[in-house]
Write a protein that binds this DNA or RNA. Structure first.
Lengths: 235, 235
DNA sequence: TGAAATTTGTTCGTATGTATT
DNA sequence: AAATACATACGAACAAATTTC
């Protein structure tokens, strides 16, 4: 374990001051010279810490004026997912998937509407982390209509991709009926799982996959690391 | 117009070397010391340029080893017949557009490549703010190939939409050849124009429009307020 | 296998430019 | 107009990780 750099401690300290409200949104931080004196370091070291915080959207600097706390990013949920495995392999990167959780429970109203089942009907819910070359790329949450896919809980565990698991359950092919894309800021949990800084930009896609007969088989939300993934739409 | 910093020229130069294939994915760049000598600057200045490129995912550095060109950013194809629209028109809101700037200048490398013209060829560049019920929704930056569209500067001023202006220049129809979507954090300028807090999440779409013969007629970047807009992809 | 050379990362110091107050 | 405060740039030294011999 390498000794942490000085500037990380300064960044952590100032970030903590913002988190605890010592500096609120819009407040001006002490000058770089003041911070240098407070922490007993060179001004360069303070600037490295402030730069890191600025990259994360926590503060922004205005020449001649000062460094100001940014308006706090609010909490957001996440979502989206498409066929992830195949596309990454085509790009020459090694795909991976980690199943965080899977559980059979009752569908809520939103899930039921998307899957065209009744609220309370059983759904198989799961959460995954998708990786490329070991680097986390996306978080996925999805629900399958349990009644339509017997054996899916086991298939999901056994196979390394949703497509393969669905194939094992007799769904040879599926298409995406609709996708919605929005931008959100990473929550601390999302940021940790994706190994991103707090407040990093995420692409959230929400969509429904349907089998060839048009029957919904998955309702899913995927959160992509906004700076590691580009959604490409080709017409 | 502030004098550009030295490190930006170095970043541009190295980025160009990567774009033209002088350094390919996975290649090792010259050492910081070598680059300092080549550009005649201090090693710090080179490091600042490399840092900027690393933030954009163009390179990554490994202590003791070197700085390497990153594997191409992950692209994520979604589907073939995908159209996208802003969901606000369906909500019955009144759209508006404000032309912030338009100017004829020389194409940079990226623009030239997208429009299939030569770097330095004249392009008509413009910036707009799109609104819905007066609320800023998106910032647009675009460039047209000036040689292919005589009269476009005047048409852009006279008409309230790009589509109408293109029609006035004889381009009756156009289609979007490709779109890339990524998530980013708002810069202070973008935040102010969109009336968002600093660091708000933005959807950035980059795309090329082509006329019916397939010739590029516009290359544009649009920044959407992530929490006010949902891109809907319908297949 | 191990020591040396190489290369990036951090930190200090100093000076000057530029935008804001 | 002057003071303040961030931005840029040069120089030097050492630390830490990797590569080379």
């Amino acid at each position: 374990m390498p000794r942490p750099a000085l500037w990380t401690a300064i960044s952590d300290s100032l970030t903590g001051d913002i988190a605890t409200g010592r500096y609120g949104p819009g407040d001006k931080l002490p000058t770089e010279a003041d911070l240098s004196a407070r922490f007993g370091v060179n001004r360069h070291t303070v600037r490295r810490a402030l730069q890191h915080m600025a990259e994360n959207g926590l503060v922004n600097a205005r020449r001649g004026a000062g460094v100001f706390v940014a308006a706090c990013p609010t909490e957001y949920p996440i979502g989206q997912r498409v066929r992830f495995h195949r596309n990454l392999r085509a790009a020459g990167r090694v795909p991976g998937r980690e199943l965080l959780m899977s559980d059979t429970r009752s569908a809520d109203r939103e899930e039921a509407q998307a899957l065209r089942i009744a609220p309370g009907d059983p759904v198989l819910a799961y959460e995954t982390i998708a990786t490329a070359d070991g680097e986390p790329i996306a978080l996925g949450e999805g629900v399958f209509p349990a009644a339509r896919l017997p054996g899916m809980p086991e298939a999901l565990q056994a196979h390394s991709s949703v497509t393969a698991a669905l194939a094992a359950c007799g769904v040879a092919d599926y298409t995406r009926a609709s996708t919605r894309v929005t931008a959100h800021l990473a929550t601390p949990t999302q940021a940790r799982r994706l190994r991103l800084p707090d407040g990093a930009p995420l692409l959230r896609t929400t969509g429904v996959n349907v089998d060839p007969s048009g029957q919904p088989i998955e309702y899913g939300i995927t959160w992509f690391a906004g700076d590691r993934v580009t959604l490409t739409l080709e017409q």
